[in-house]
């Protein structure tokens, strides 16, 4: 009994210590941003759109964007686009599935204001809220049912942020190239590096600095921080150049899944073997208890 009492005192002090240096300290160090669960409540409700009318209006989009699901290529490659606009405009195949409907429509009317980004490259692109709603309806109608986390990340984050642990760069996945066998020179790799460098220079000029690599952002920031940051970058980083991208729930899930898969790949295995190791030590402890009991027999 006395030992249990001593153990209780040690346990209480240890827990208080943990509480003080972890949950309590972190609650005091970081301001808490409540987030609004992707409600985008600063934007008004939009009228119902008509996909057929939207299709006609969307023909203007391919002046800058590609729509790969409709086999419509972009007029310029990533590097040339970045030279022209500062950033490569996204492929619009997934826009209807990834973006919040209300956000998307208001965004078409006034990109700079809705993204809360002072110098957003895209100009206002819809004449009225009804036109905007029609375009949104069109993109919703063409978006594929299944979007992978990687595709979601590329659409939402991947043109500004690299993910080097997943071999992703702002201009695409690092290609597999072969070096010249006698000299060791890999001209294709050098070409890719040069293009990436040109893209990054243009991007850094557009954004003010090169946006950070997101390889293990899932471990350096909490999930809550990332979700509220993506929902409204100004809430967590006032003054940041990062635009509000207006993801919907599915879009956010894709992005977070991808960040977790690349930044914390051991999670499934960890959860699978963790309890087995713990079970091993529970059995170990039971056996140790029986051994101790037999060893101490007759000692008291």
């Amino acid at each position: 009994m006395k030992e249990l009492k001593i153990f209780g005192i040690v346990a209480i002090f240890t827990l208080v210590l943990y509480w003080g240096v972890e949950p309590f300290a972190h609650s005091q160090m970081h301001k808490h941003v409540e987030g609004e669960h992707l409600a985008y409540s600063d934007l008004k409700e939009t009228p119902k759109g008509d996909a057929t009318k939207g299709e006609a209006l969307a023909s203007a989009c391919i002046g800058c964007h590609s729509i790969n699901v409709k086999n419509m290529p972009a007029p310029m490659d990533a590097v040339a686009s970045a030279a022209a606009y500062g950033v490569n405009p996204p492929d619009l195949s997934f826009a209807g599935a990834m973006l919040d409907e209300k956000f998307f429509a208001h965004f078409l009317l006034n990109p700079a204001e809705v993204t809360k980004s002072k110098h957003f490259a895209m100009p206002p692109s819809a004449g009225s809220i009804q036109d905007a709603a029609d375009i949104v309806a069109y993109f919703k109608s063409i978006a594929p049912k299944e979007i992978s986390p990687k595709e979601g990340f590329e659409f939402a984050c991947g043109r500004c942020h690299a993910n080097r642990y997943a071999k992703w760069t702002q201009i695409g996945t690092v290609p597999k190239t072969k070096a010249n066998i006698t000299t060791g020179v890999d001209l294709d790799a050098l070409e890719f590096k040069k293009n990436l460098g040109m893209y990054q220079n243009a991007l850094a000029k557009y954004m003010g600095k090169l946006p950070p690599d997101l390889s293990i952002i899932i471990r350096s920031r909490s999930e809550h921080f990332l979700e509220t940051l993506i929902e409204n970058p100004q809430s967590q980083l006032p003054g940041t150049a990062m635009p509000r991208v207006g993801l919907n729930k599915e879009g956010m899930e894709k992005v977070m899944t991808y960040l977790e898969e690349t930044g914390d790949p051991s999670k499934p295995l960890r959860e699978d073997i963790g309890w087995k190791v713990i079970l091993f030590f529970i059995i170990f402890t039971i056996l140790a208890y029986l051994w101790k009991k037999s060893m101490w027999k007759g000692h008291h």
Partner: peptide
């Protein structure tokens, strides 16, 4: 034997 028991709980 007692050390090992405590170690088991600790692990």
């Amino acid at each position: 034997s007692k050390d090992v028991l405590v170690m088991g709980v600790y692990f």
